[in-house]
Design a protein around this nucleic acid. Structure first.
Lengths: 216, 216
DNA sequence: TGGTTTTGTGAATTGTAATTCACAATATTG
DNA sequence: CAATATTGTGAATTACAATTCACAAAACCA
């Protein structure tokens, strides 16, 4: 369950040193002496982060990055290189590297870079996550928020109680939104047909309040 | 600008005592000896909270509540009564009271009740507020969230940089969403046409991250 | 039991958001 | 300067959300 990091460098000593540093910190590490074997590795396990040397015999680092990123765009690549110049760094970043570390680097520089990129991955997953769309779309509707609020204040409620509480004229309209909320698991219905907020729904209503406070 | 509280009770001493307690705490207070005069008061100023005695000569407290709530459903009513029983309390709440305070009550009981109901009002306004719809609808879209994220990580960005960052094939599509974000003031554009997160946008992105963590 | 309220479904319609397309003004660059 | 990339606009289309309508099973009640 640990984060998996690939290390791709033809320098065996450096490779082992990096592996040791990362392993110590609890990362799972697989190291490869060349781009080709690294690519082959993707068939068995896909890492969150790849640390790739710029210059390698055979396929070079930039080409490897290109191939990795094409298939796994969310994966973060840290490029390491002995011949570090501004232009080179810029080129690497343009070519798909997410970070850039000139050799030699300190243990801490490496760890910082790895952690920063892992954090970045988490962040991206969070705000891009597939569930987000639906949940937010579900909430982007006043009636549904009103339903949540009513359930929040009154606890368990029956269908028609909710309908009346909202002052809705058409019960099927309310039903539509109730169904929607149910699908997204923000509310639930027990055997007696009583509606209640789910734990997610409770959280949502807290955060809605938080949100509007933030937006003042 | 202070919160306005109505006190409706035929007992002059109690009325004055309540008025004093609330005034000390910074609330604006208007007191009425009867339901009829209280209703007349609504023509000049509408309170956030009404403290209503159960038993009064002329129109009784429950009837007053009914009439107030019919016209101002968001207004909170605290019922106070000397003849307090469970049934009575339940009936009062069913009849539209939002809170119920047996006489005699301590200064603190009163203040707590008032504050709790004010908090409730704020909460309701927050999650029903008109701006909420738009903001949430704006956020209920992956592309727009991706744009926010990109701006968050890269700071100022040009139009085509954003487009490429998202891997979008159609730049007009991105433009559409940029415009949308601009309208809702989550991003802004400076003289050099560079896009940046607005302060609201920054808050939003923090909030989104927070939200998704909580929804795990 | 028979009428009424509650709770619900599914199809048709309306309304709104999102996408695509055709086009263009404004930088930027060689 | 000419060519190209950038940054846009507005209309047409498409996709999807929301509402309304007609209908009905189940529960409730007198």
């Amino acid at each position: 369950m640990n984060e998996l990091v690939y290390v791709v460098d033809d320098d065996t000593d450096l490779r082992e040193s990096i592996t040791e540093i990362l392993s110590e910190e609890g990362f799972a590490v697989r190291s490869f002496a060349g781009a080709e074997t690294a690519l082959a590795g993707f068939d068995t396990a896909i890492p969150q982060i790849a640390i790739v040397d710029y210059m390698m015999p055979g396929m070079d680092g930039m080409t490897l990055i290109f191939m990795i990123k094409k298939k796994y765009p969310r994966l973060k690549v840290i490029m390491i290189t002995a011949f570090s110049t501004v232009e080179n760094a810029v080129a690497a970043m343009k070519g798909g590297a997410d970070d850039y570390l000139p050799k030699p680097f300190k243990k801490n520089d490496l760890l910082t870079a790895v952690r920063r990129n892992l954090e970045e991955i988490r962040f991206e997953q969070e705000i891009e996550g597939p569930g987000m769309d639906e949940i937010l779309a579900c909430l982007a509707n006043q009636i549904r928020r009103q339903i949540l609020k009513a359930l929040h204040t009154h606890g368990k409620m029956r269908f028609m109680d909710i309908t009346r509480d909202l002052g809705a004229t058409d019960h099927t309209k309310v039903n539509f939104h109730l169904k929607n909320l149910k699908i997204h698991k923000l509310i639930s219905q027990d055997r007696d047909k009583l509606y209640t907020l789910s734990s997610q729904g409770k959280k949502m209503i807290e955060y809605l309040s938080l949100l509007s406070k933030k937006l003042q």
